[in-house]
Write a protein that binds this DNA or RNA. Structure first.
Lengths: 160, 160
DNA sequence: TATATTTAAGATAAAACACTCTTAAATATT
DNA sequence: AATATTTAAGAGTGTTTTATCTTAAATATA
């Protein structure tokens, strides 16, 4: 592993996780794909798994799911791989996260305090709602292309 | 279960969880204690577990941990229970969450994107940092007393 | 057609998380 | 002193998450 991938490398312990490992791996792979334009449009999963230090089979399964949900397309056999079905500048983070974590991702209270709803808001509800909404807005307005490009550019700038 | 406790009742499915069940249960119990002043200063764990619909043994273990960390004190035997060692108006949410989830709770990237740090910020780092800091600030400025009182008052207001 | 390559799919395993149960220790009451 | 009550502590169980392994299906190339 090296180059750009160091940027997306594994983080062993993590508190305050909002997305699961599955979601994290999926997002990292998509960011990788968005940042590395491919000639054929397809990326080899094994190479990606090595670059990103993610289990090959696990990553395969995650990307499989994104294929089934219509975000990616796959191609078997030699020189096969996985690529965007929808161009990455048309895929928002919100779409990705919902595909990976479930459609109700943005619907719940960030903290997990029960009874937190519009009808009977918990003490922190207003705060949480504001926080979640800014999160959701950010996710809905940021595309994979934005993220991948920004990441790559920043990395290159640091390197120079 | 009824009355105030309905407010702290269990929520079965939850996405976007930031704190674990253990943290949630602990926080709910502390909010309960902060809102219900006790004559003796001690609360019976079994009663609390029933009111909050949390497993008695599990809750006992969680509160045990808070006792060991110096937030609570316990008293065995008849009419025994668990109570605040530090008064709840001097316990911030930040202290509680750190005690329950670990001291490094606020140190990591909310999303879990790796490589997200001051030195080599990931594309979302600025956004995440802002989000996390407002979260942390809110947690550091809100005491258990604030939360419990607010909750109770709001509940009573709705009831009237 | 035979072989190698690559993703798909399903079964299995390991680890983390969320409880559950049993026994021990402390305290109060009789 | 005996008994009941309540938390402390540790072992054990079930579930979910995470990861791995094996086999199948598709595709390209020789």
């Amino acid at each position: 592993m090296g180059g750009f991938a160091m940027y997306l490398c594994r983080q062993k312990t993590l508190k305050m996780r909002v997305i699961s490992r599955l979601g994290e791996y999926g997002l990292r792979a998509l960011m990788y794909m968005a940042a590395h334009k491919s000639d054929t449009g397809y990326f080899n999963i094994r190479v990606m798994s090595q670059e990103l230090d993610i289990s090959f089979h696990f990553l395969t399964k995650i990307l499989q799911g994104l294929t089934q949900r219509g975000l990616l397309q796959s191609y078997r056999g030699p020189n096969g791989g996985i690529g965007f079905l929808v161009p990455p500048d048309q895929i928002t983070l919100a779409t990705v996260v919902k595909a990976l974590e479930g459609d109700d991702f943005f619907q719940n209270c960030l903290l997990g305090l029960p009874g937190c709803g519009e009808r009977q808001p918990c003490p922190m509800h207003v705060f949480w709602t504001a926080l979640r909404e800014s999160l959701q807005t950010e996710f809905e307005t940021t595309t994979l292309d934005d993220l991948g490009t920004q990441t790559l550019e920043r990395h290159l700038r640091l390197k120079a």
